[in-house]
């Protein structure tokens, strides 16, 4: 395999002045499905939002397909009670560049656009991939994966259930023709039945050769889905596990918390 798809090198970031994650090293190869697992509130979403270009990284490097996505150098921590430095500070990463490179992030608990209909949202979704080949194949994959969206195409997002909204979010991500699709807790807060339905859909997305980075609280789902698993704790990657050595739920808990609960 020549070159990695996504490569994070000693990436740090947070919400100034609060540092959330530090020195994160993470790589995803072409055609790989990778999982990220860690306790609630330890900064997984913050890390992914940074990679997606929504918040500025403080230090380190984000490389996608060999190209650097964030500005060089360290973010100057200039915080003043008197002056608004934000006015002069340039963004260190642009979500638009990230999307254009093919790195698509599906936000956790994405509320999308409450007053737009499913159809309208799916209509503008491929804007990032317009003109590229494979759009119509992807459209038919999305139709196959989420037949329910067709039934609800005239409903406003506001009136969808959490699971349906999640389906729209994933569909929107897919329609951008991702070269890497990042799913942040796609099964959070869903009923067991819907959780199963979405897990199956995500497995089918992996089988369709879409490289994945998935965060989820459900270890069984994650270990069955991915080729590699990163454990994330207190803002850093603590270990990396191969498919061949995929541990059980209890073993992971021991690795994260010291002893099984």
């Amino acid at each position: 395999m020549t070159g990695e798809l996504l490569q994070l090198s000693s990436l740090s970031g947070g919400y100034p002045p609060v540092s959330v994650f530090r020195n994160v090293d993470l790589t995803i190869g072409k055609g790989e499905a990778v999982g990220l697992f860690g306790p609630n509130g330890h900064g997984k979403t913050t890390l992914l939002k940074t990679v997606a270009g929504l918040i500025d990284p403080w230090d380190g490097e984000i490389r996608f397909d060999g190209r650097r996505l964030n500005a060089e150098g360290v973010m100057a921590a200039r915080i003043s009670k008197h002056l608004n430095y934000d006015l002069f500070r340039r963004r260190r990463i642009q979500a638009r560049d990230v999307v254009r490179a093919g790195l698509i992030y599906v936000m956790q608990g994405n509320l999308l656009f409450p007053e737009m209909t499913v159809d309208e949202v799916l209509h503008i979704a491929p804007s990032a991939s317009r003109g590229r080949s494979g759009v119509s194949e992807m459209q038919s994959l999305v139709r196959d994966l989420f037949p329910r969206l067709r039934e609800r195409r005239h409903s406003k997002i506001r009136y969808l259930s959490g699971g349906e909204r999640q389906m729209v979010s994933i569909a929107v991500g897919l329609l951008a023709l991702p070269r890497l699709l990042i799913l942040d807790e796609p099964t959070l807060g869903l009923s067991p039945k819907l959780r199963l339905e979405l897990s199956e859909a995500i497995a089918r997305i992996r089988d369709a050769q879409v490289p994945l980075l998935v965060v989820d609280q459900n270890v069984e789902f994650l270990t069955s889905l991915v080729d590699r698993l990163y454990l994330f704790d207190h803002g850093s990657i603590t270990s990396e596990i191969d498919k061949a050595h995929m541990p059980s739920h209890d073993e992971i808990m021991t690795m994260l918390f010291g002893s099984a609960p």
Partner: peptide, 26 residues
């Protein structure tokens, strides 16, 4: 606003700025 791609993108950006950015809109 209702039919054109730009108009829809504008409404999208108005309703959820982050999600619109994640779709690659300027």
């Amino acid at each position: 606003l209702r039919r054109s791609a730009t108009g829809r993108a504008m409404r999208a950006a108005a309703q959820n700025r982050e999600a619109a950015e994640l779709m690659g809109f300027n």
